[in-house]
C-alpha cells in the first residue's frame, strides 16, 4: 500500500474516532473496558451535533496544585528531557497577578479547541484539523513540522517535538519533528471517559474543570455556562473557544 493511501485511511479513521478506540483496545483492554460506559458504537462517526467543551472555574483552581498537568503528562507520556525551553507542555498552570490590585489567580492553560482555529487555517498540508465534534488535532502523519500553526495560535498551546521519543502511548501517537497539542483526550472521550486532567482535578476534590457537550442544553457544562458568567481568553479574536473560564 502506498504511503498516501495509508494516510488517507489513518485520517478517515482518526476523524471518525475509530483509530484511537481500536488502538486503546489493543493496548490495555482490561483497563479501558472496565471504565467504558459506551454511548455510541466505536465505528460510528463523530457528529457535529456534539461540541465538546471545558469550563474552568478559576476560583476553585488551587494555587499550588499541579495535578491536571501531571495527569496529562502521564496519560500521554509527555515526560520531558529536563529542558524546559523545548520540552512539550500540552497543559500548563498559569499564575496571574492583577497589576492594580495584586490579586492572584491560577488557571490551567491548554489548547482552547477553537471553533475557528487559526492553527487549522494556516496549516499548509491540512495536518491540523478540527473534528466535527470540535476537537482540534494534528495528524502526525502529514505534519511536516513547519511550525506555522505555533506562530498562529494565540494561546501558545502547541509544542514542537524537539527530540527523539521513546515509550509512546499507542493511543496518543507522537513523533519527533511534528507539532502536537492537547487532544482533549480524544481516545478517552470517544470511549465516554472524561479527559485525564478533569479526572485528576475531581480526584483531588477541587472540581475546577467541567467537561461536556456544549451543544446539549441539559449537560452540566451547558447548565453552568447558562447560570454563571464566563469568559473566553482573547475573546476579541472571535475564535469561539471550546475552553471557557470563570472568575477571570
Amino acid at each position: 500500500m502506498s504511503e498516501e493511501s495509508n494516510i488517507d485511511i489513518y485520517r478517515r479513521r482518526f476523524m471518525s474516532g475509530t483509530a484511537t478506540a481500536a488502538a486503546g483496545l489493543a493496548v490495555a483492554p482490561g483497563v479501558m473496558l472496565t471504565e467504558v460506559a459506551r454511548a455510541k458504537p466505536a465505528d460510528q462517526a463523530v457528529s457535529s451535533d456534539i461540541r465538546w467543551g471545558m469550563l474552568i472555574d478559576t476560583n476553585k483552581c488551587n494555587e499550588g496544585c499541579n495535578d491536571c498537568v501531571t495527569a496529562c503528562n502521564e496519560e500521554h507520556n509527555l515526560e520531558g528531557f529536563g529542558r524546559p525551553a523545548t520540552d512539550a507542555q500540552w497543559i500548563r498552570k498559569v499564575t496571574l497577578k492583577d497589576k492594580q490590585t495584586g490579586n492572584i489567580q491560577t488557571l490551567p492553560m491548554l489548547c482552547q479547541h477553537c471553533e475557528h482555529p487559526p492553527c487549522v487555517d494556516v496549516c499548509p498540508t491540512g495536518a491540523s484539523f478540527k473534528r466535527e465534534d470540535g476537537i482540534v488535532l494534528v495528524d502526525k502523519h502529514i505534519c511536516i513540522g513547519c511550525r506555522y500553526c505555533m506562530m498562529a495560535c494565540p494561546y501558545k498551546a502547541r509544542s514542537f517535538v524537539h527530540e527523539k521519543l521513546q515509550d509512546q502511548m499507542p493511543y496518543s501517537p507522537r513523533g519527533k519533528g511534528t507539532v502536537e497539542s492537547c487532544t482533549f483526550c480524544v481516545h478517552r472521550v470517544d470511549e465516554d471517559i472524561l479527559p485525564a486532567c478533569v479526572v485528576a482535578c475531581k480526584e483531588e476534590n477541587h472540581n475546577a474543570i467541567t467537561f461536556g457537550d456544549m451543544n446539549d442544553p441539559d449537560s452540566e457544562i451547558s447548565q453552568q455556562l447558562k447560570q454563571h458568567s464566563s469568559r473566553q481568553v482573547r475573546a476579541d479574536l472571535e475564535l469561539n473557544t471550546g475552553v471557557r473560564y470563570r472568575g477571570i
Binding site: D121, C123, C146, T178
Partner: peptide, 22 residues
C-alpha cells in the same frame, strides 16, 4: 529546516487552500 523534510512530497500533494503558506 522542516521538522520532517522527508515529507516534502506530502507538502507538495496535500494542500489546505485556506492556508496562505500553501
Amino acid at each position: 529546516d522542516l521538522g520532517r523534510p522527508d515529507r516534502l512530497i506530502v507538502a507538495m500533494t496535500y494542500y489546505n487552500f485556506k492556508s496562505i503558506f500553501a
